[in-house]
Design a protein around this nucleic acid. Structure first.
Lengths: 138, 138
DNA sequence: TACTTATTGAAAACGATTTTCAATAACATG
DNA sequence: CATGTTATTGAAAATCGTTTTCAATAAGTA
C-alpha cells in the first residue's frame, strides 16, 4: 500500500499528475491524524515549496470525490480530512492527541431495524463516531 | 411545554429577556427542522423586524451553552441547530424534507465495550446519527 | 422614576473558502 | 523528441459566514 494507489486513481479518472498533487497526496495518505487544509498546506510545502493553498483545497476536493479521503466531524470543527477506510467503517478519535482509528463493528443492523419500526423511517445511512483516549494518552 | 421554559432558563442564568431573544426562541423552539443562523434570522424577523443577524448568533450561542439547542452535523454542512432532546439522544434525519426526529436506543454499550477491548481506547463519548426517509417522504 | 449595565444593530474586521485569470506544465500526438 | 492542446497552477480578488467593536438603547433594580 503506497501513495501510488491514490496517484493512479487520480490518473485513471482523467486528472493529471503534478508535483503539487503529489505533495498533497504524500501528506494526507497514511496520516494518523485528521488534517485541515491549512495543516496539509504547511506540511506539504515542506515537500514542494511552490505549492499554493488553493491547490490544496482543489486536490482535497478531488480526493474526497474519489472517496480516497473523508471529512472528520468533531466538536471543534468539521474541516479536517483523513484517508478513508476500505469499505464501510467508523471512526474512533483520541480526544487528547487527535489520533484517528477505524473500526467496522457494524452491529447496528438490529438497532436501525428497531428504530425503523418505531419511527416509520426508511433508514438509508448512519454515522457513528466514538471519542475517547488512545492507549498512549489514557 | 412552551417557549416560556427556555425564557425562564435564560432568565435564571442572568440573561435579560428582550424582544430579540423572544423572537429567536419562538423560532427555534419546537421546530422540526434544523435551522441555520440565516434561516433563524429570516423566520424570526417576521416576528420582530428590527432583529439583527448578530443577535441571532449571540442568542443561539447562549441557547447552546444552556444545552437547550444542539448543533446538527450533515453532509451539506454543520451550522444548523435543533432544540436538544432531553437526556442522551440521537438524531434521525430525513434526507428529503430535512425533518429531524429523536431516538434514544442506546444499545451501544456492547458495541463500545467490544471496540474498547479491540483497540485499547478508553471510550468517553459517541455520536450516532441516522439518515433516511420519513413516513411522508418515502 | 431614575440609574446601572447588559443588550442591541450597524459597520468594520476577520478567517476560511471560492472564483478569476494569465502563466505554466502535463501529456497526447505527430 | 518536438509541438500543440488544454488541464492545472499560484496570486490576487471576491465572497461567504462569523466575530468584534462601539455608541445608542432598553431591561431590570433600587
Amino acid at each position: 500500500m503506497t501513495t501510488e494507489i491514490w496517484i493512479s486513481q487520480l490518473q485513471d479518472n482523467g486528472y493529471r499528475i503534478t508535483s503539487a498533487r503529489r505533495a498533497v497526496v504524500d501528506t494526507v495518505y497514511g496520516s494518523t491524524h485528521a488534517l485541515t487544509p491549512i495543516e496539509v498546506y504547511d506540511k506539504a510545502r515542506k515537500k514542494y515549496r511552490a505549492l499554493g493553498l488553493v491547490t490544496v483545497y482543489r486536490t482535497l476536493e478531488k480526493l474526497e470525490e474519489l472517496h480516497l479521503i473523508q471529512r472528520v466531524h468533531q466538536p471543534i470543527g468539521c474541516q479536517a480530512f483523513i484517508s478513508a477506510g476500505v469499505g464501510h467503517q467508523h471512526l474512533l478519535l483520541c480526544q487528547n492527541c487527535g489520533q484517528v482509528e477505524f473500526f467496522d463493528g457494524d452491529d447496528l443492523d438490529a438497532l436501525t431495524k428497531n428504530i425503523s419500526r418505531k419511527t416509520g423511517y426508511q433508514i438509508k445511512e448512519h454515522w457513528l463516531q466514538l471519542f475517547g483516549l488512545c492507549i498512549n494518552c489514557k
